[in-house]
């Protein structure tokens, strides 16, 4: 690990007092960044330590929204969401990710900004446009079984690894940020990420001096919620494909649906075309299949990951079908299909 200086953000010492530089990094739980620093993929000269930022550990609730502080751990957020039927998909997604040890340390803000687990991004002997712009992409002609099929470019096919962000996308959460000048703004999670294009090293719309303060989730009556994750082993593995779905059926018609995919996109994938296609139409298996086909129209495999295209189609159609059946049997249902 390269040497770095440390400045701690506290409730009394704000970001404006500290300032940032191009080589600064915010350090929250460190479950991803510390690892990247060990690999010398990240070599920050200045660390802005967030471990003493106590006010970012709170979850606040109003009539209209939940506000999750950026430093709330994945465990605390999963436990909180488990108790609320309108946040079930978030609890399911969080608990499907990583291990208890990692979830106890990983934070809400950090989870959103974690980096890809592309093998070639981690292997500093290989070209990677994300790690070293202009060096090339070894994944295109390499082992690309875990890589993305949506939102890719000829410069990068790395998939986004987060489960939580997929649920946040389905729930239409907003990210609240502050910068060193004290300016604040809200960004929908659906607009937080940038497609790789020819600048895969730029992953979000956040400026270098912009810090995630909290995530706001709108409160509303939701429907049957599922996070379905398909992976190589049943625990402690990243998604090959995953589906987050919140569906409300009224008189056999899909009255409302939120749909997001994980594992298949270079960013958590909001399946907006599929949602629009299904909304206010009578539920049927051909409807789900046509809708997902429409979403997957631009999908392109790179060889090893071709299987993800039929797999996400089948998984999404299954999840939607299951939610529809559950809504038919339990009109007005909100939450998970199965929960203890």
């Amino acid at each position: 690990m390269r040497p770095f200086s440390v400045n701690s953000l506290t409730d009394g010492k704000q970001l404006a007092d500290i300032g940032t530089f191009e080589s600064s990094r915010f350090l929250a739980g460190g479950t991803n960044l510390v690892d990247l620093m060990k690999h010398q993929i990240e070599t920050p000269q200045h660390i802005i330590d967030l471990s003493r930022w106590d006010s970012a550990n709170n979850i606040d609730e109003t009539d209209d929204y939940y506000q999750i502080g950026a430093m709330v751990s994945n465990t605390d957020l999963a436990n909180f969401a488990y108790q609320r039927k309108d946040l079930s998909v978030l609890s399911q997604a969080l608990l499907s990710g990583a291990t208890v040890q990692l979830r106890n340390r990983a934070t809400t803000g950090g989870n959103l900004l974690q980096r890809t687990r592309c093998y070639y991004f981690y292997d500093t002997n290989q070209p990677c446009n994300k790690r070293e712009p202009g060096s090339g992409c070894a994944a295109l002609d390499g082992f690309n079984r875990i890589h993305a099929v949506l939102g890719t470019s000829e410069h990068c096919i790395a998939s986004h690894p987060s489960d939580m962000a997929v649920a946040m996308t389905a729930l239409d959460a907003q990210v609240k940020t502050i910068n060193t000048k004290g300016d604040t703004r809200s960004i929908p999670v659906r607009e937080l990420y940038q497609l790789p294009g020819d600048t895969p090293h730029i992953e979000t719309v956040l400026a270098e001096d912009e810090l995630i303060v909290a995530v706001k989730i709108p409160k509303k009556k939701r429907g049957t919620q599922t996070y379905r994750k398909v992976r190589d082993r049943s625990s402690y593995a990243f998604a090959l494909v995953s589906v987050a779905c919140d569906l409300t059926l009224k008189d056999g018609v899909i009255a409302d649906i939120s749909l997001a995919f994980g594992g298949v996109g270079t960013q958590p994938w909001h399946a907006a075309s599929a949602e629009d296609f299904m909304r206010n139409k009578t539920a049927s298996s051909s409807l789900y299949e046509q809708a997902v086909d429409l979403e997957l129209n631009p999908a392109r495999g790179a060889g090893g990951n071709d299987f993800k295209i039929p797999l996400i189609k089948r998984t999404a159609a299954f999840v939607i079908q299951q939610a529809v059946e559950h809504q038919m049997a339990n009109p007005g249902h909100q939450g998970a299909i199965h929960a203890r």
């Binding site: 460190g30 479950t31 510390v34 330590d49 465990t75 291990t99 040890q101 340390r105």
Partner: peptide, 21 residues
Amino acid sequence: GACTVVVDNERMNACLLLAFQ
């Protein structure tokens, strides 16, 4: 997980924790 320790009653991977935090 071979480095698992308990920090304020929560298990964590000691290899990923920077002690100064």
